[in-house]
Amino acid sequence: MEQFWIFGYGSLMWRPGFDFLRSEPARVHGYHRSLCVYSYVHRGTPEEPGLVLGLDRGGSCHGMAFEVSPANWEETIAYLRAREQVTSVYLEKRKSITLIASGRKVEAVAYVVDRAHRQYAGVLDDASLEHHVRSGKGVSGDCTDYVMNTLSHLRDMKINDPALERLARRLEVQAASRSS
């Protein structure tokens, strides 16, 4: 029987929004999690873009794999395309991922950033990251909430993401200095 898997590395890990048979920690090689996508809809606007995560080239990324029932596959993919492809900044790819507990490799759909897309932010310096995260507000809420919620779930999963940790410290320090 064919298996159907989705790989989540950002909000899909903690808010998949689709029915699944099981989920388990997984890793994809050749890509890393990065705040490299200007958000024009969910966490920002074209006038004041926020930032959201993308899978960008290089390294590896720990995330969550979701096995989807074959009976729900078409509905799940339609939902994910509507959610993830609002502005077509991601490429829907089938990637080999490793299920951490068993070491087994499976094929999964993953949304990889399109580096040729106008919303690809690339590697931003700390000040630019902080600016876009602080100012980004879109139909799904504040960009700061998105970053901190993702980081909280990564911590719960025992996934260390040094770049998000560094950004969170900057956000927390700035918030503390504004309230004093």
Rank of each mutant, 00 (worst) to 15 (best):
P70Q: 12
L21H: 02
Y111R: 02
A110K: 07
D161K: 01
R170H: 11
Y31I: 04
V123A: 14
K105T: 14
L53W: 12
K95C: 01
I97A: 11
D126K: 12
K158Q: 13
G59Q: 12
D156W: 08
P25A: 14
R169W: 11
A175Q: 10
R170N: 08
W73S: 01
A82M: 05
S102Y: 15
G141K: 03
L99I: 10
C36Q: 14
T144Q: 07
D56L: 12
G122P: 09
E92H: 11
C143V: 04
R170W: 05
L99V: 04
V106M: 03
G8F: 06
D114V: 01
R83N: 05
N160F: 08
D56S: 15
G54W: 02
A110G: 09
A163I: 04
N160C: 09
F20Y: 03
V113A: 03
G8N: 05
L55I: 00
K137T: 07
G44H: 03
D114L: 00
R81N: 10
V133Y: 02
V147T: 08
Q3A: 10
C61Q: 05
V89P: 09
E67W: 06
V28M: 07
Q119K: 13
Y146E: 10
A168N: 08
L164M: 01
N72E: 08
L35W: 03
G138T: 07
R178M: 09
D156N: 08
G44R: 03
S11K: 13
A168Q: 13
Y146W: 07
L35P: 01
H117C: 00
H132E: 11
Q174G: 03
I97D: 01
A26K: 12
K137R: 14
R169N: 13
R81S: 08
R33Y: 10
G59N: 13
P16Y: 03
L55C: 03
G54P: 01
S140K: 04
